[in-house]
């Protein structure tokens, strides 16, 4: 059986008419930029706020962890971050799990395509959040700790980088994985290893912080940003390359869905 015959058979099996109206297939019904753009602007506003907060209170209240001002401005920010981030993990991941689609075998082609574009929007937000953690605030950490001697693990740089932006991207990484697993048939029936690596690798940077902080406390390593103590982050950062495997996988799925959707629209003939 050729691939097109298989498509026609599966289309017929789903009760889809090859001559279905095309009015439901406008591209705007499948791609909405509103959600990702709003989320991106929200994240950008949050990151600008955190950077301005550092500018205002890092040198004025962040140099001595024993002072009342440090407790007020920096430990206060840390407590707020931890409560909000853990709550947001619980809220988003629970929402995705409890609203999962239990009838994926009945999913229409056009709905599946729409969900793929939602997934891509989710991954876009994940990548945007990762940028601030892995690039912007990560190198900023060098500019602070190679200039100012630390007397605590909870420095003005770390409170934003390690306990702010890193748990924040985990929210979207795990969220995008859960979205795919609970709403897309191919990701529900088989776990994608590239996707898993691209989410779990950056997530493991969080527990690696324990080693990092232990090493800094034990060896007082400030002089050398490229020190072996930091290489755990390096290896875990390589996992971002697995997004390439995920891109190939999503492309394969979408090509198949586009062919099926074209068939559904009655745009083929024998």
């Amino acid at each position: 059986m050729s691939s097109m015959e298989a498509i026609r058979e599966s289309t017929a099996a789903e009760g889809l008419s090859p001559s279905a109206s095309t009015k439901d297939f406008s591209t705007s019904r499948f791609i909405s930029f509103r959600g990702p753009v709003l989320a991106m602007l929200g994240i950008l506003a949050l990151m600008v706020f955190l950077r301005m907060y550092q500018q205002m209170y890092a040198f004025s209240a962040g140099l001595d962890s024993t002072t009342p001002d440090f407790d007020k401005y920096w430990m206060g920010l840390l407590r707020v971050e931890l409560v909000l981030l853990v709550s947001s993990w619980a809220a988003l991941w629970s929402f995705l799990w409890f609203t999962r689609d239990r009838h994926l075998d009945k999913l229409q082609v056009k709905d599946e395509i729409r969900r793929y574009f939602h997934l891509i929007g989710f991954i876009f937000i994940y990548a945007f959040a990762v940028y601030f953690a892995a690039s912007f605030f990560a190198e900023q950490d060098a500019s602070w700790h190679q200039t100012v001697v630390r007397d605590t693990s909870f420095t003005p740089s770390h409170i934003v980088l390690f306990y702010g932006t890193m748990p924040f991207y985990v929210l979207f990484g795990v969220g995008s994985f859960l979205y795919a697993m609970t709403r897309l048939p191919k990701f529900a029936s088989n776990i994608s290893i590239p996707f898993l690596i691209a989410v779990v690798g950056p997530f493991l940077i969080l527990p690696n912080l324990g080693y990092n902080e232990w090493g800094h406390a034990f060896w007082l390593m400030e002089e050398f940003f490229s020190a072996p103590l930091h290489w755990g982050f390096v290896v875990l950062g390589w996992s971002v390359l697995a997004l390439g495997g995920l891109l190939i996988q999503i492309s394969q799925h979408l090509i198949e869905l586009f062919r099926r959707a074209d068939a559904e629209r009655g745009a083929y003939s024998a």
Binding site: F124, A127, F128, Y131, S135, E139, F225, S226, G237
Partner: peptide, 18 residues
């Protein structure tokens, strides 16, 4: 856009720490 953000993150992190 995703690839640019992801590549910036990964390449920069790798380079700054090595």
């Amino acid at each position: 856009v995703i690839v640019f953000l992801a590549v910036t993150s990964a390449v920069h992190l790798n380079f700054m720490l090595l």
